[in-house]
C-alpha cells in the first residue's frame, strides 16, 4: 500500500505524467511486459526446408505440444517473426528462405534445427547444399539428426530467454543515449 500512496494523482498534468513515467522506468514494467508478450508470440513461418520437418510435426503433436510455448506456425511470412530452418537447405530452397526472411517484419529471429543446418551434417560435402549461417543470422542452434522434439522445445525456451535479455539490453542502451 505504501507504494501506491507515493503515487498521488493530483497536481498539474505534466507533473503527473513525469511522475508516472519515472515510476514505470524504475519498475521497468514496460520492458518486461513487451518482452513477455513477444516471447510467447513466436510465430514461425510455415516453411519446411528438409526432413527435420517430420520431427517438427511430431513436436506440434499432443505429446510435446509446442503451442503451449506460444509457438504456432503461420502460412504467410508477413504474419511471422521466426524462421525455423529444418535441416539441410539446398541452393534452390535457400533463395526462397532468404526471400521469406526479407518479407518478415522486425523483430525477427532464426532457429537452425538439426546437424545439417549447423554445419552440413551428413550431407556436408554435397554440391547442392548450403549451411544456414551463410545467408541468415542464426540465433539458436538445435543439434541432433534429427533433434528429438524435446530438444526443439529446449531450443525454443533458449530463444525466449534470449529475447527477454536482448530487449532489456536494447532499452537500457537507448536510455543511455
Amino acid at each position: 500500500m505504501d507504494d501506491q500512496q507515493g503515487l498521488a494523482w493530483f497536481g498539474s498534468f505534466e507533473e503527473i505524467a513525469k511522475k508516472s513515467l519515472d515510476y514505470l522506468k524504475k519498475k521497468d514494467l514496460l520492458t518486461k511486459t513487451v518482452s513477455w508478450g513477444v516471447k510467447y508470440s513466436l510465430w514461425p513461418a510455415h516453411l519446411m526446408t528438409s526432413c527435420c520437418g517430420a520431427e517438427l510435426a511430431a513436436a506440434s503433436s499432443p505429446r510435446f505440444d509446442l503451442e503451449r510455448l506460444g509457438f504456432l506456425p503461420f502460412g504467410s511470412p508477413r504474419q511471422t517473426n521466426v524462421i525455423l530452418v529444418e535441416g539441410t537447405t539446398t541452393i534452390k530452397m535457400a533463395r526462397i528462405v532468404k526471400r521469406s526472411w526479407e518479407q518478415m517484419p522486425s523483430p525477427k529471429w532464426v532457429i537452425a534445427m538439426g546437424a545439417c543446418a549447423m554445419d552440413g551434417g551428413i550431407f556436408f560435402d554435397s554440391y547442392n547444399t548450403i549451411v544456414v549461417r551463410d545467408y541468415l543470422p542464426v540465433d539458436v542452434y538445435v543439434p541432433g539428426c534429427p533433434p528429438r522434439p524435446e530438444a526443439l522445445a529446449q531450443g525454443i525456451l533458449m530463444l525466449q530467454e534470449k529475447i527477454k535479455r536482448e530487449r532489456q539490453e536494447l532499452i537500457k542502451t537507448s536510455e543511455n543515449k
Binding site: 526432413c51 539446398t90 526462397i96 550431407f123
Partner: peptide
Amino acid sequence: IGFVHRTS
C-alpha cells in the same frame, strides 16, 4: 520439385 534435392 527439387527444393530438397540433397544429391544423396
